[in-house]
Amino acid sequence: MLELQSIHKTWEPHRGERRTLLSGINLSVAAGQTVAILGASGSGKSTLLKIVAGLEPPDSGEVLLDGKVITAMPPEQRHFALMFQDFALFPHLNVQDNVAFGLIEQGVAKAQARSQAVDVLRRFGMHAFALSRVWQLSGGEQQRVALARALVTQPRVLLLDEPFSALDAELRVHLREEFRSHIAQSHMAVLWVTHDEVEARAMGSAGVRLQGCALQALW
């Protein structure tokens, strides 16, 4: 169970001026549950994900995992996975090495990590591209590789930041189904950030809206 308790975050648009971005954010996501977070651009959705991932500290409040406070834990020790809207695949590595990246960081030997990466790619129908460079792939293929990279380490929490926003409408609908099936098998807590309500309702078992620095439950 992932929990956010009274998260507060400000930012400094100009020198000497502070504005509240997130205020009193409380949220719980159980294992196997997907919570969709809706909100307009600049509402603080991505910042909230970064706080959960440990990439940014909150000004106050706590992040808990299975009842344990992890607010100050560095991101690499949380065993979460974060997916970005522009995929953030490493351009200097091929597809297989991108997917194996997290495994190698966990201490898995390179050869074994690559073999595991190819197995995961096979599940995504991408094993034929294992040795391809990431820029040779289409948008949908890159998104599949990004999800494979996120899932291969079997993270405890999956964080998705507008994962389909760079894709066209048809591909988006197709990938939604595919992602739902992969995520259901992995049985982890998922936070899905989007500004598209149709996507949010399709993917989220629960939905909240981030508005005026606070969360409102939608369904």
Binding site: L55, F84, H92
Partner: peptide, 26 residues
């Protein structure tokens, strides 16, 4: 893009490992 670094960190790389495996090659 800062996302490369964030992706590496969230995939388990320490700041030094993220530098060595992602930032430096790029």
């Amino acid at each position: 893009p800062v996302q490369y670094l964030h992706a590496a960190r969230s995939l388990g790389a320490s700041p030094w490992r993220a530098f060595w495996r992602v930032t430096f090659p790029l």
